[in-house]
Design a protein around this nucleic acid. Sequence first.
DNA 1: ATTGTTGCAAACTATTTGCAAGGCG
DNA 2: CGCCTTGCAAATAGTTTGCAACAAT
Lengths: 139, 139
Amino acid sequence: MEKCITTLLREQGFKVTPQRLAIYQALAATKSHPSAEMIFHELQPVYPTMSLATVYKTIEILKEMNLVQVLNAGEDSFRYDANTESHPHIRCLSCGRVDDLEGVDESVFIDQVAGKTPYRLTGQQFYFYGVCPACQQKT
Amino acid sequence: MEKCITTLLREQGFKVTPQRLAIYQALAATKSHPSAEMIFHELQPVYPTMSLATVYKTIEILKEMNLVQVLNAGEDSFRYDANTESHPHIRCLSCGRVDDLEGVDESVFIDQVAGKTPYRLTGQQFYFYGVCPACQQKT
DNA sequence: ATTGTTGCAAACTATTTGCAAGGCG
DNA sequence: CGCCTTGCAAATAGTTTGCAACAAT
């Protein structure tokens, strides 16, 4: 059983606020890899006074705590994922949605790269691009 | 033998200007994957009156003509590569340099993904992160 | 009570756009 | 000559920062 976000925040000396809980839970509850703006709009009805700056500041903390990973799938804005395991993503060039790619084994590929590069590797991001099933039907 | 950039521009109805040639040649002459700003500064001594907007406009055309590919290696700005073959890149988290990863076979991995996703695949980008040899020594 | 956090507005950075002057074909 | 392109400046979009009021510990 993992520690809850409340405990983790307190342990690292961050204060526990409703905004932080809401932002983390919004991220943890979805697989849609929302941007800061998307999180902001989603929480707008519940926290009408919350500002976009707070979303960014909170995400900054969650990044430091390794509770979210940042995606940069070739758009103008960043997206965030509460699943911090490294896994490939795919973006629909038509509607912009970003999905996880599941059941793919990237370890062979990573090992191959690790053996060939003189860099000391610390991480990687794999982005695929295409057209999602829904957009293929819209033809 | 490939057609030269001059011919390609003319064929597609674009005018051939010294700025366009310089920008493309700056990109083709390096493996450092420069940003728009870096190209701008590199050409500054030779074309002191050229503006950053021209760099962006020219890159836009080169993209359309498939003469450059765009990299988004998790920075705040885009980088460009005159090598339009899909190939993995690696970025040094210490100094920011972006290198090509050579001699890596990504096709097995891509085929695996193509077989598992319901998306119609059109492309992909692989980014690795680490510390380059030079920065490892700086320790 | 202390210290960190919020929310607003302003600052900032990368990129794009409008438009008059200039250059290619 | 006509139309595309340049270069400047202003606009835009995403993100960050400064600061006073506020809330968590």
